[in-house]
Design a protein around this nucleic acid. Sequence first.
DNA 1: AATCCCGGCAACCGCCTCCTA
DNA 2: ATAGGAGGCGGTTGCCGGGAT
Length: 318
Amino acid sequence: MGRSPCCSHDAGVKKGPWTEEEDKTLVEHIQKRGGNVGSWRGLPKAAGLNRCGKSCRLRWTNYLRPDIKRGNFSDEEERLIITLHAGLGNKWATIATHLEGRTDNEIKNYWNTHIRKKLLRMGVDPVTHQQLPPDQSHHHLNATSIAHHPGALLWAAAAASLGSLDTGALMQAQLLQQLLQAIGSNNGTSGLIANLAAANTMLNSSGSMIPNLLLDQMNCLQPGYLCNTSNFAEQHVVQQQLTNDASPGTSSFAAAEQADQLCNTTASFASHDVASAGDWSPAQEFAGLLEPMMEVPDLCSLESDSFWKDILDDSYLL
DNA sequence: AATCCCGGCAACCGCCTCCTA
DNA sequence: ATAGGAGGCGGTTGCCGGGAT
C-alpha cells in the first residue's frame, strides 16, 4: 500500500513553534465548522494557514482542543499509566483513551521524563515491568532492602490491585519472587517477618489490596510443598487459563514464562536447607499479617467492568 | 554576569493502518 | 484483490528555560 507523500515536504510550508496568530486562525476555522475538521490535508488552504495538514492536526489534538486537561498528573493518573503500560506497552494512543483530557503525546512525554526514571530508580525495568538484575538496577530489592525501601513492592501490589489480569499475574509472580528471596536469605525468621510487616504497613497505608491468588500461592510455600514443583506449576497452569491463551509474544506468554522461572526459583529454594525452617510456615505468618486488610478483589469479576474489559481485549490482541 | 548543562515538552518525521475506489 | 490517499501513531529531535558552576 505504498507510503503516502508527506505534506511536510511541500516547499515553503512553515515549520516550528506555532504563533498566537496561527493558533487563533486554526481555532476559529475549526469552530466555524462546528468542530468538524473534514480533511486535514485541505484545512491549511481553507483556513489560510501556511502549515501542512499534519502539523495542524497535531497542534489541534495536542494543544488547542478545548477538552485538553492541563497541569500536573495526579498520583491516580500516574498509577493508571503504569498499569496500562504494563499491559499495553508503548500504545500511547490507547492509554490516552483511558485518561480523560490527556493526549498520547503528553502521556508519552510524561512517561519518558518522569515515570521511566522513577521506575529505574526503583530497580524496575520500564519496558518489561520486571525487576532489573542487580548489576543493572539502581536500587535492587533484596530481603533486607524490602524493609527499608518497599517502593517496588508497593508499586507491584498497587498495579495488581488495579486488576489487569495479565498485569496481576506478572506482578504476583514478581512479588512472590521477592518473598522467595526473603525466605531464602539467612536473615532468620524474625528478620523476614519484620520485613513483611514493614511492607504490609506500606500496603495498608496506600490502600492497596493483595489478590487472593497471591495468598494461595503463599500457602503453597510450606516446606513440604516446595519439594513438589509440579504442584506449583499446576497452580500457574490454572492462572494461565485465567489469563486466557498464552501464545508467544503476548503478555500472557510472558506471564507463563515468569511462572516457569518462578518454579525454577522454587525448586532451587527447595534444594536448599528447607529442613531448617522446621514447622514454621511463612505463608501462615504472612497471611496472618494480612488478615486485617483483606478487602480482596475478585480479579475475574473485574472483567465485567467495561473499562478493564477494553484493556484486556486490547492486551489479548497484542 | 556569563556560560554550561540538563530536563521538559512541543513539534517533526517517517512508517503503519484503514478506507475507498 | 489491489493501489493510493489520508489520518494515526510512536520514536526522535531540538528549542527553551531554569539551575548550577
